[in-house]
Every structure is written in C-alpha cells, then in structure tokens.
Computed example of a mutant assay.
Amino acid sequence: MVKIIIVDDEDNIRVALRDILEYEGYEVEEAKDGEEGLRKMKKGEYHVALCDLQMPKMGGLELLKKSVEAGLGTQFIMITAYGSTDNAMEATRQGAHDFVSKPPDLNRLLISVRNAIAAYNKEYEAVELRKRIYKINEMVGDSEAIRRVKESVERVAPTEARVLVTGPNGSGKELVAKQIHTKSPRAHMTLVEVNCAAIPGELIESELFGHEKGSFTSAIKQRIGKFEQASGGTIFLDEIGDMSLSAQAKVLRALQENKITRVGGEKEIKVNVRVIAATNKDLRKEIQEGNFREDLFHRLSVIVIHVPPLAERREDIPLLASKFLQDIAEEYNSSPKQISPDGMAYLQTLPWTGNVRELRNIVERLVILGGPNISLEDVKMHAGQM
C-alpha cells in the first residue's frame, strides 16, 4: 500500500489532509514538525511527504535536504501559505517533486500526489538500474594502488567535498568520478559530464553556463548550461586543464558563490552542484606557466585522487581482462572466451601506454580475431597492433 506522511505544525491541516488521503485509499501518518518527520521517515518507507515549508525546530527545506542526504527516496510535495516563485524554485532545485499553496486545491493536490507516487516508482526502478550501472562501472583490481583509490572513493563519496582526479589518459578517471557520484547522497540526481578538451574555447562558457537568445550570432534561442542541468546533482569537468582562463574565472565564481550568469544575461542564477574535476596534466606546472588559475586549483583540489597507470598495477590485468571478456560476450550475445595462462602472462609484460582503455580494446580485438580459446600466439599477433 502507498504510504504518505504529512509534516505540518497545524493540527487542522494535518487532519484535513489525512481525511482526504485516507478516503482515497492511502495509508497516512503525521508529524507535527520536521524533526519528528525525519525520525519517522528514517524508520519507515514513505512514498510521498506532504510537507509545510514554515515549521518550528526544522523547516520543510531542511527536512527535504536531510531526506535527500539520507537517500530515503521519498517524493516531497511542499505546502505553504508563504508561497513564492523563489521558494518554489529552491524547493524543486533541492529535489522536491511539486509545490502547492495553502490551502491546497483538492483536485490539484490529488493529481500531484498521484504524480509523486509515479515518480517514486520510477525512482525505485532507477535505483535498481543504478545498481546494475554500479556493477558495470565497478573498479576492478586487488593491487595496493587500486585499493588506495577505492578507499579514497568510499571516504569522500558521502561528503560534499570537491574532488580532483588525476592520472594519465585511459587510466579510469571517469570511472572514479562515476563511482563517487553513485555512492553519494546525490546519486538520485543527474551526473552531467563535460569534456573540456572537446569543446572549442569560444564555446566553453556557453556550454557550461548557457546563453540568452541573441547573445551572439548563432544564439537563436536560450540555452541552459551544464551547471544548471546539474543543479542538485554532480558535474564532472573532465580534462579541466584544457579550459580557457576566461572560463576558469567563471567556474571559480560559480564555486565561490553557487551562482552563474548565462552568456549575454544579467540575472544571477543559483546552482547547487557538486564538482568533480579530472586532468591528465600537472596543474601545478600549468599554474607556473600561466595556463591555470592557482585559486581555482585550490578550490577544486579539496581531495585529490590519483589513478595509477596500468603499468603500475600489472597484477590487476588478469582480473580486468576477465571482466572485459565477460562484458564483450554479453555485448555480442555469445559465450565468453578464455585467454590461456601464458597469453595472460604475456599481456602483463606489455608497456600499456594507453592504460585500461587500451587493454579493453585489445581484449575485444582478441575476442574477434582470436581462436575459440585465445592462445599465446593469438595474443602476440593481435596485441602487437598497439
């Protein structure tokens, strides 16, 4: 049965809403303030919370925030007599499903409740999907180097700390960022990825912060930037070392003030974003050469996680190769092949300048071109095409 909790300090409001919702067949509980609501929500599973914004002890926005941080999954409908566009936007930015004024219109409220229940069910399905994605994005390896990375991810993910992920191309920096997001309280929200190296310098600010219609020649309509898209969730700035100094200055402001301004716009827009950045460059050297802002570096590098090259974790190659063999078999809808022990040992001797990404490519090549059981000769022949 669908369970709903009403969190409001006004007794008459709670009673009226309870009568309506129970008549519709829902199981309903009450809480007179945010603190009581949070206690009950942590003990039981609720599909929807009808929550007043203005309450003693703990207001509705704080309750919403703590619910999101605890990963409870309850869909919030905020109800207040002090409704305003700003309150509505702030509630939705923090993860509220809907916002209605007090006293609520009955039909409007019931429609909102039904939509919130549907959103809860969708989120439940998404959680199951995230579990599968987590398995896909799992960091594979038992080496000391990769254990240190895993430990760092476990410790930093539940926090709001900004993270700078360093390491060579193909080593798995993106995977680390995805793991941090998946294990964080923001996992139910969006992870927005931006490859700073792939966006021309003249377009990076528009990509990150959006633009207003007519702000430049090709701006034929308003564009919402990546920071706004990621609000409530996480933004992953890959190859941050390739970002222009002009864009760096705006990113720094966004981190300092939690506000952005679209290109060609004047209005400041609040954003609530966790930032994870990655680079294959030595940013301290880039700072000395005048290519990267030192103040931005310190903002981004609250926690630094270094992902080692594959050549420094060769003992993980058999585990990685076995995982890739299984993944590729599933993609091709075929039985997984095996690499002979001497073939696997040979793989561990290669230089791996392209790191894990290169290993994955070679395993796929061996699956396609090698025999039913991949031999040492197969490995020598096809791994030599690096």
Rank of each mutant, 00 (worst) to 15 (best):
V176A: 05
A329V: 10
N361M: 08
G95M: 12
R114N: 15
S335N: 12
F236R: 06
K281P: 03
V163P: 02
N291S: 11
G232W: 10
R162G: 04
E69L: 03
K221G: 14
N195P: 12
P341A: 06
I204F: 09
E202K: 11
E123Y: 13
E27D: 12
K57I: 10
L64H: 04
N291R: 15
V176S: 07
Q179Y: 03
D8S: 14
A177N: 08
S184A: 09
T261Q: 15
K57M: 13
R365Q: 13
A49F: 00
A247L: 02
Q94G: 09
V304I: 11
H306T: 14
E62H: 04
Q179H: 01
A116S: 11
V153D: 06
G384W: 01
Q288K: 15
G73I: 01
D86H: 00
A383R: 01
T166D: 01
T279M: 08
E257Y: 05
D295T: 00
V140W: 02
A219V: 07
D19W: 08
E266G: 11
V113I: 15
V127N: 03
G71D: 03
A247R: 09
A81N: 05
H47A: 12
G172C: 10
Y26H: 07
L106M: 06
T234D: 08
R360A: 07
G214V: 14
G73K: 08
A187Y: 09
D86S: 14
L61E: 03
E154I: 12
M189P: 00
A96R: 11
I6D: 08
E125R: 15
G44I: 02
D295V: 06
K178H: 09
V127C: 01
Y332H: 08
E377V: 05
Q348W: 01
N169M: 13
V127D: 15
L325F: 13
A70H: 09
R253L: 07
T80L: 04
S143T: 01
Q385P: 02
R284N: 10
M381A: 10
A157E: 10
A70I: 06
L175C: 05
R262F: 08
I328S: 03
I220V: 15
E45W: 02
V149K: 07
V379Q: 08
S67G: 15
Q94K: 15
A321K: 06
G290R: 10
E294G: 12
T279K: 02
K3E: 11
I79Q: 01
R14L: 04
V140R: 03
R162W: 06
L319H: 12
S184Q: 03
M58W: 10
G214R: 11
I13C: 04
E212V: 14
Y23T: 12
D105W: 06
L347K: 00
A161G: 02
K221F: 09
I6P: 04
P318K: 09
T353Y: 10
E312P: 05
Y120N: 13
K270A: 12
P185G: 03
I235Y: 02
K323A: 09
A157V: 10
K57S: 13
Y82P: 02
E24D: 08
E29G: 00
I6V: 14
E289S: 03
